[in-house]
Design a protein around this nucleic acid. Sequence first.
DNA 1: TGTATTATTTAGACTTATTCTAAATAAAAA
DNA 2: TTTTTATTTAGAATAAGTCTAAATAATACA
Lengths: 219, 219
Amino acid sequence: MNKKITVILTDPQYLIRLGLKYLIAENEQIQVVAEAITPQDLTKKVFDYQPNVVIMDYYNSPIFSKADIQYILDTNPKTYVLIISSDEDRDSIFEVLRMGVNGFLTKHCDKDEIIGAIYATAKGEKFICNSILNLVLEKQLCDASKATKRDCAPSKLTKREIEIIELITQGLSTKEMAKLLNISHHTIYTHRKNILKKLRINSASELILYAIKTGIVET
Amino acid sequence: MNKKITVILTDPQYLIRLGLKYLIAENEQIQVVAEAITPQDLTKKVFDYQPNVVIMDYYNSPIFSKADIQYILDTNPKTYVLIISSDEDRDSIFEVLRMGVNGFLTKHCDKDEIIGAIYATAKGEKFICNSILNLVLEKQLCDASKATKRDCAPSKLTKREIEIIELITQGLSTKEMAKLLNISHHTIYTHRKNILKKLRINSASELILYAIKTGIVET
DNA sequence: TGTATTATTTAGACTTATTCTAAATAAAAA
DNA sequence: TTTTTATTTAGAATAAGTCTAAATAATACA
């Protein structure tokens, strides 16, 4: 009757994976069916195993990007994502929660909270650990108009804009970019202006930091 | 004749402790004799058990202060400290290394590296994992606060130049920097030119990446 | 299908940022 | 003290970036 809850682990920290594995091994209702290291690896294994839960880290410089998480959620309706975050950085928490993940823990959570979160996530319920919950309550996800606007995050960047960000972080000058893309240097400026506006930032430095944080570029 | 290596664990993250415990349990030569949560707890247990190795986290807001580490090292000559750092702590790496800890890992290290580090640390040898080692080698900077010079390579960059880098990575414009430092904007340009020349790079982007890599600035 | 929306592209006039050359002054080391 | 290194600066020339405003291309929508 009660089928086991199947789980895929993706945390890049070996010790965390090991700890989780033993923790889960103590519970007969939950079974780790695979571990994944790369996004490609993960999407393949999610497809193969159709797990109930993917347990995933979320660092400042995530190995698994938001797009990866989104893709998994979109293509596997029965698979839910449980984030175990290493930090309590507010901004990334809200970003992740908006993506539609079901569980959110920190690595300071104890055994009961972790097991509880796995059960809840597998059922498609939300589970957010206390320390995170406090943060969430402090600053409501969307302050005022939640009914119509489900989009209080900074506007999404277009493909071209992300391309420009990549080139910027590679240190290319505006002219070089224009030449490379065979477009006017004015276009580059326009894109950049829109990027800074969308991200509500003011400088190339912040842009690069953003790119690193969101995993657009590798450090 | 081969006595077991005795270890005390102090990491506040439950999963990390659990992972370490199971990892160590697989190795007959190493034995966890205690776990400690608070500094008082730790100093008492170190005194009681006289372990070969104390495995300790080091976060940005450490539960165990530098003074705690120093105290343990000073009062227990046969006890060595192995730091397992979360990788966000780049700035503090150098601080910790100067304190005289013997081992330094990140939580991304694998089993072999961890076991190897415990062995090395227990013998009083140095063990620094590869990712940290690279950082150490890359960073040719002494911090401004009169660090002992033998501990880090002589700085290629001057104090002022590092100051400029910090401001650049904070996203300040040249004019803002000039105003802040009460110097001509030309001076800023000169510094920047020299910085780029010294680091053999060509753009602000690369400079920011450099600053992030070497821990001048946090991501 | 046509229409609205969004993304991508561009120019010209204008402003600001940066480089170059070259050197003076200050601080530290030999 | 002398020498070296660090920090500072200016003026002229050049390059980079901004602003306004809009055209075109691609996509979603009904």
